[in-house]
Amino acid sequence: MMISKPLYTLQLKTKQNFEDNLTHLKNLILDCESDSIILAPEVCLTNFCYQRMDEAAEFAKVATESLLRLCSDRVIVITMIEKYRNGFYNNLKVFYKGELLHKQSKHKLFPLGNEHLHFQSGDIAEIAPFEIDGIICGAINCFELRFIELWQLLKGCDLIFVPAQWGKERKDNFETLSKALAITTQSFVMASSGANDTCAKGSAIISPFGYATKDDEQEVISLRANFNEITQARKFIDIGLSKTPCNP
């Protein structure tokens, strides 16, 4: 049976005021169709605010409660700064039907941005497939896109999320790697990068054949995806991919 879903990838500027960022994000989410899947850029509510990490971690609690109320009829994928006993983590969280459906901490930290000095590295085992309404999903967080061994962990997924705050000097890298991820895994890829002056933009929804829907002038990029395209791609160009079973 055909699965069709409206997909939305966001391309936002992040301001200094965390509350303003959350309000803007919520308004954009409310404008998206019900039964949709929405991806926001990496740490779009706070940015990498290394001088305000404790404040950002406290705000993550507020944001989490707010997004749990918004996700009754749509999927929201976002990353936020959170604190545990041994330090701070860059956590990707998937909200759906009023619950936290999936969480993973960023495993590969970006040394050029000094992330390794401010964050703890997540467990690589958290980079694993999960299911949304029969769609097998996976996620790679920004810098992790450069590591092909992490792509291998998500082979067989139907939809892969790539939230990012990618530097504009490496815009072509981001767009090329995102498209290569879609072609290599024969899956849909949703890439969402920030729109601040230092960011690459380049947000896109990419089909299993590598066709990209993107627009650097827009905050919201959308596509109604027909997931039958995955079956067609894998049958037409057979490289041995099949669905990856999710952990219960």
Rank of each mutant, 00 (worst) to 15 (best):
L159R: 00
L67F: 08
W166F: 08
I78F: 01
T79Q: 00
T23P: 02
N21R: 10
H107W: 10
C142S: 11
K13V: 10
A63T: 04
E55C: 08
D216T: 12
E175S: 03
C44Q: 12
R146H: 12
L150F: 14
Q16R: 14
L100D: 04
N17A: 12
D20H: 09
K15D: 15
D158K: 03
K103M: 11
T244R: 12
F59R: 06
K13N: 14
D133I: 02
K26F: 09
A204M: 06
T79S: 15
A212W: 10
P129V: 06
K235N: 14
T231W: 09
L153F: 09
Y50M: 06
E82G: 12
N47M: 07
C49K: 07
R74K: 15
V77R: 01
F95N: 05
N47D: 15
P6W: 04
G134S: 07
S66P: 02
Y50P: 10
H24Y: 13
I148V: 15
A128L: 07
I135V: 13
K168A: 05
D73H: 14
M190W: 06
F48I: 07
H107P: 01
Q186W: 11
S192G: 08
V75P: 07
L67K: 00
L7E: 04
T176A: 13
K243T: 12
C44K: 03
I124D: 03
Q165P: 00
K179W: 04
K243C: 06
V77L: 08
D54N: 15
K103N: 10
Y8H: 09
K83D: 06
H107Y: 15
I135E: 00
T23K: 15
S192H: 04
L109T: 02
G194T: 12
Y8I: 06
G202V: 02
P248W: 12
T198S: 12
R69N: 12
F59E: 04
S105Q: 03
T185E: 07
F147H: 15
Q232K: 10
I136E: 02
I140E: 00
L145V: 08
A180F: 08
K108E: 13
A125C: 07
A233R: 10
H118C: 00
